[in-house]
């Protein structure tokens, strides 16, 4: 008696979702995504000059997209497979009559879902907190709200899939992921020139630029940067997700794990 790919994926995903809700790691990731909202609320309450759109764009751009999204995704993405290996519980899953790729998909999907939900809540709270700022401007428009939501969700999906695949391929995924987040996403994405194209951060920003309004112009270098068209960046992100999923599933189907007793 064997279990098919989709059925196994669904079974693992539903169980994993339940476990996620009880996991400290998932809540830590959620807190990371809520942090910009908390900062926005504190700043809005403490300072009378800061404006709603200024607060939401600056915190959304630098804190949410630049720091919270990559870090929260790293925290949960790496856990998709590497945590089971570290906990040595992967044996139970690998020795069941299921396609191994289902294990990857089944554990990745709840992580992405969870992070998407948290980023949606985080974005909504950030915008709500920024809206309470007392500085006078046009307020937080849909041209700020929706691009931020879109980029945050696309960001967690892409980063999480990438880090999940990394967790299957390399032994110290968290460390490699941290190095990647720092050097490529943190450093390269802020260098001028076309090197930015190599980073996910650039494509997320392109999503914002493609759907956002003039409120984003207050970000340093926003107007001077040549952003990718919306469709192109969306396509690049979708391709990264597809390739990382395929690479992770393919590797998991072939990889053996040497677990200590």
């Amino acid at each position: 008696m064997t279990t098919g790919f989709w059925r196994a994926s669904l079974l693992i995903a539903t169980t994993q979702l339940g476990l996620l809700a009880r996991s400290r790691r998932a809540w830590a990731a959620a807190c990371l995504l809520l942090l910009p909202a908390i900062i926005a609320w504190l700043v809005a309450a403490a300072n009378a000059k800061v404006t709603p759109s200024g607060l939401s764009t600056m915190l959304g751009w630098y804190a949410l997209l630049g720091v919270s999204v990559p870090l929260a995704s790293l925290l949960l993405g790496v856990a998709v497979v590497a945590e089971e290996v570290e906990d040595r519980t992967i044996t139970y899953l690998l020795l069941r009559p299921i396609p191994r790729a289902a294990l990857f998909v089944g554990r990745l999907a709840p992580a992405v879902l969870w992070l998407c939900a948290c980023s949606a809540v985080g974005t909504a709270l950030l915008v709500a907190a920024a809206a309470t700022a007392r500085g006078s401007d046009a307020g937080v428009s849909d041209g700020v709200r929706l691009p931020l939501l879109l980029a945050a969700c696309a960001g967690v999906a892409t980063y999480t899939t990438l880090h999940a695949a990394l967790g299957v391929w390399v032994k110290h995924a968290m460390i490699v992921g941290l190095a990647y987040s720092f050097t490529i996403e943190g450093f390269l994405s802020n260098l001028p020139g076309r090197n930015q194209l190599l980073t996910i951060q650039y494509h997320l920003r392109s999503l914002v630029a493609g759907t956002g309004d003039d409120a984003w112009q207050r970000i340093d270098g926003f107007g001077a940067t040549e952003w990718n068209p919306l469709f192109d960046s969306g396509l690049v992100l979708a391709l990264v997700v597809a390739c990382a999923s395929a690479a992770g599933a393919w590797r998991l189907a072939r990889r053996q794990f040497e677990l200590p007793a």
Partner: peptide, 10 residues
Amino acid sequence: PQQDALWDDM
């Protein structure tokens, strides 16, 4: 398996 590993939350 020999290793004392289980999903402790289950």
